[in-house]
């Protein structure tokens, strides 16, 4: 889902970069010592996840994990995803430096949306089954919203919206399900071992 260089028009690239800068600024505000290792580990997980591919149709899709990042980090997912995408662009040639802003926006904005939709479930008073469902939904919806955002970016550059978006959403359907399961598994694991990791976030 990385958009390559030269596909999008400059206006969209600049727009994406502005949104990303704002998101990173919000994310970095009030970052605490305790948050930094958490952001680092999740950033590394996001960085590696893009190598796990699911072959679908004419193109290929890969794991994203932005739902997990949003679920645990909230707005702090923005800097974490920016770092991981920057390194992917430099080391793997996925995406590109000029599209870094747009790509970060496409990945991190859904993460933040999912944080607001499902982040409440991390409180210890919430039942385990509700918590697992919310974590699954977070992983699922983050990829869904990302797909729609990518389709929208391509639409703004001149591709017809509904076929492009439909193709991307359809291709990512298996990824959404896998992401949901992985996010739920990670969230349950973390809740068991380090419940305070999930609860300490207040942005």
């Amino acid at each position: 889902m990385h958009i390559s260089e030269g596909v999008l028009s400059p206006a969209i690239l600049i727009g994406g970069a502005v949104v990303t800068m704002a998101g990173v600024a919000i994310g970095l505000k009030g970052v605490d010592n305790k948050d930094i290792p958490k952001m680092g580990i999740l950033s590394a997980a996001f960085f590696v996840a893009s190598l796990v591919h699911v072959p679908v149709g004419p193109a290929s899709v890969h794991m994203i994990l932005n739902g997990l990042l949003g679920f645990i980090l909230g707005w702090k997912a923005f800097p974490a995803i920016l770092v991981a995408l920057g390194l992917q662009a430099l080391l793997f040639q996925f995406g590109g430096i000029t599209t870094l802003g747009v790509n970060t926006m496409n990945m991190a904005l859904p993460a933040v949306i999912c944080y607001y939709l499902f982040g409440w479930s991390t409180k210890s008073s919430i039942k385990q089954s509700v918590f697992i469902t919310a974590a699954f939904a977070s992983g699922f919806c983050a990829v869904l919203v990302s797909s729609i955002l990518v389709g929208f970016c391509l639409y703004l550059t001149g591709e017809a919206f509904s076929p492009a978006a439909k193709l991307i959403v359809a291709a990512h359907l298996p990824v959404m399900i896998i992401e949901g399961i992985v996010t739920a598994a990670c969230a349950v694991f973390l809740k068991k071992i380090r419940p305070e990791l999930l609860e300490e976030i207040n942005v």
Binding site: V31, D32, N33, I36, P37, M39, G40, S43, A44, F47, V48, L51, V83, A84, L87, Q88, L91, F92
Partner: peptide, 28 residues
């Protein structure tokens, strides 16, 4: 991307974590 790129990227991220921790600690 081979194993060296993957390891390099993870190394970068942990390095950044170290730098960030250094600065927040210094401030404190």
């Amino acid at each position: 991307p081979g194993i060296s790129e993957v390891m390099g990227g993870i190394g970068y991220i942990f390095g950044l974590v170290g730098v960030a921790l250094y600065f927040t600690n210094r401030r404190k």
